[in-house]
């Protein structure tokens, strides 16, 4: 079974005995309520699935694991110029073909009445701009692309 988090991929094939699962010295009982057992100590856990993501609360932490279906391919790594939140484009500060330096502000967007700047992550040239001032964007949408200087 394969899972993805915001920064890693994991493969896990736990040993199953009924509704109990064992891996690396940790035991999870998943019949009805979820109990974690480490070194003979029990801890209550809570989990729920939203879309393909398992949200898990355990030991005071909240974690997310996205299940990767067998045969599915991972998405390409984006270059950081994506919307970090859903919201509205307030201002486009650059134009196509413009040279930019790392750290330059490229766009200003707004969500929940707060402004957020999209910053160039490298020195390069603006290749394309995908949104205009006033557009609504979804989280993760690619806002613009930059061709990095060699």
């Amino acid at each position: 079974m394969e899972f993805k988090t915001s920064d890693s991929r994991y493969e896990i094939e736990p040993n199953r005995d009924g509704s109990s699962f064992v891996h690396d010295g940790i035991i999870v009982h998943a019949g009805g309520e979820i109990w974690l057992e480490i070194d003979g100590r029990k801890h209550k856990a809570t989990a729920t699935k939203v879309g393909d993501v398992w949200w898990v609360h355990v030991l005071g932490h909240t974690l997310q694991y996205e299940i990767i279906e067998a045969g599915a391919t991972g998405s390409n790594e984006d270059n950081g110029l994506t919307a970090p939140m859903p919201g509205k484009i307030l201002d486009v500060l650059v134009s196509q073909g413009q040279s930019v330096s790392q750290g330059d502000a490229l766009m200003v967007m707004e969500a929940m009445k707060m402004e957020h700047k999209i910053i160039a992550n490298c020195d390069g040239v603006v290749e394309s701009i995908h949104f205009n001032t006033g557009d609504q964007v979804q989280q993760g949408a690619e806002l613009l692309s930059i061709v990095e200087n060699e």
């Binding site: 079974m1 899972f3 994991y10 896990i12 736990p14 199953r16 509704s19 699962f21 891996h23 690396d24 940790i26 999870v28 998943a30 019949g31 979820i34 974690l36 480490i38 801890h43 856990a45 989990a47 699935k49 398992w54 898990v56 355990v58 030991l59 932490h61 974690l63 694991y65 299940i67």
Partner: peptide, 16 residues
């Protein structure tokens, strides 16, 4: 240990 536990819980929940 928290990540290992969370991963095992996700796997157990997916399986059941």
């Amino acid at each position: 240990i928290v990540n290992n536990a969370g991963l095992l819980i996700a796997a157990a929940c997916e399986s059941t």
